[in-house]
Design a protein around this nucleic acid. Structure first.
Lengths: 245, 245
DNA sequence: GAGTGGTCTAGACCACCGA
DNA sequence: CGGTGGTCTAGACCACTCT
């Protein structure tokens, strides 16, 4: 068991549980809290930090949800054993690449106002054939094509231009437009690349590709985007942390 | 906004927040609470149900986490628009198939005590070459092969037999052995099937397959299993719901 | 300004675990 | 048995959104 030393600023607008969770996470990923380390019990720990037990618990829950801590009733809380990796969250490919220093680049192949195909219309909850913004983009990292991305968005986003998309990720543009994406449903599969996909992705026809379809909803529960993407399997894979309830 | 009618049993050992969450979820998936329906505000709703606001909030949070409800400060809580699907949780392929009425069957190809290869040893946090239980199984559904599964487990699980595995899923066996899996890290990719994989899966060499590697940890944070699976992409895909924090 | 969710507290009792 | 996390309460103040 270790003495935790955390820096809590009650004057900050950042919630206390978030301050605690962030610093704990940093200490775990930095190795200051080694795997297997037992945290003290919640009551004493909360008193030590000058927080209510519930606030401390909320911070711990955050990290349990990320798979960094493990709790067992009657026993205690400890740092999970095994190497720690960042779990994937709801982020855009652009952000992921930028964070990894991979210099993402986007080539806009198409940007049309077009009639929505059936699957996109169903996902967006609009009538098939309605006018939507259709995007086809190739995302490259470190100079090599990585993904071929197709997106359908409601017509109200029709002001997004090809230039916008070349400079920033779609999700960043949506955020600037005041859209907060809260929930997304994803479907991940695999198949072989078509000739056109292979040409755009710089690979061979018939190469294995990962496919992802995603419907994203904003904070009022309205579908904001339907996406159907194709990734080069030799250069990309999905990572996730799953926690049982 | 609707009048909620829930059945809360304070004598039950089931936590109140769980009772509320479960019944709310049922009403949403059953359509009794239509997409877009606004729930009343938390203070009144809690009073109406005879619960503290925090307990009600905890129930709501459960469903927000599953992507069934959406909250916005200053506005309210409502059922997410768009068709509702069950989000995927940490379940085994066997359970998923059984629930879908797909009659899962398992053929145990190999069951050995063998030396751990490097990647499995690293995932399990043991020395390479240590003795581990190695499993190779083919999972079929509705009479057709679906997945080729490789698992490596610490030697203490060496008492698991091929017969056990033919009758029940691996996770069910581990549960019976008192092991609770709490966290898993997964990696999903794609490639082409090798000749051997194609033969076992009843498909053609070079067919696209989905691959998943998973390391699972129990409630004390110890790695319990390392898995490397191959799925026929024409018969299987991964589905998930992602929620932003 | 009125109404909403977001955070926080101090205390309480319980269920489970290990010695 | 003592120690731990799991649940629950009644109240409070704040930040945000809409009109």
């Amino acid at each position: 068991m270790t003495r935790l030393s955390l820096d809590i600023d009650r004057a900050s607008p950042v919630p206390l549980y978030f301050q605690v969770a962030k610093q704990l996470e940093e200490q775990i990923t930095a190795g200051a809290l080694a795997p297997g380390t037992k945290l003290g019990n919640e009551v004493q720990l909360a008193a030590h930090l000058g927080l209510s037990r519930l606030t401390l618990r909320r911070a711990i829950e955050e990290l349990v949800g990320k798979g960094l801590l493990v709790r067992k009733r009657g026993v205690g809380t400890q740092v999970v054993l095994g190497q720690v990796k960042r779990p994937v969250e709801l982020t855009s490919l652009y952000d992921d690449l930028a964070r990894a220093g991979q210099q993402p680049a986007t080539q806009v192949v198409r940007r049309d106002l077009a009639a929505a195909p059936e699957d996109a219309a169903a996902a967006l909850g609009i009538a098939p054939g309605s006018t939507v913004l259709y995007l086809e983009r190739v995302r490259s990292a470190a100079g090599e094509p990585l993904a071929l991305m197709h997106n359908w968005l409601p017509q109200r986003f029709g002001r997004i231009t090809a230039d916008d998309l070349a400079a920033r990720g779609l999700y960043a543009l949506l955020r600037s437009a005041g859209v907060t994406i809260k929930v997304a449903r994803q479907h991940i599969g695999a198949r072989k690349a078509t000739a056109r996909e292979a040409a755009l992705l710089g690979t061979r026809r018939g190469a294995a590709v990962l496919t992802m379809q995603r419907t994203a909803y904003d904070d009022s529960g309205v579908a904001v985007e339907f996406a159907s993407h194709v990734y080069r399997a030799d250069r990309y894979s999905f990572e996730s942390t799953v926690v049982s309830h």
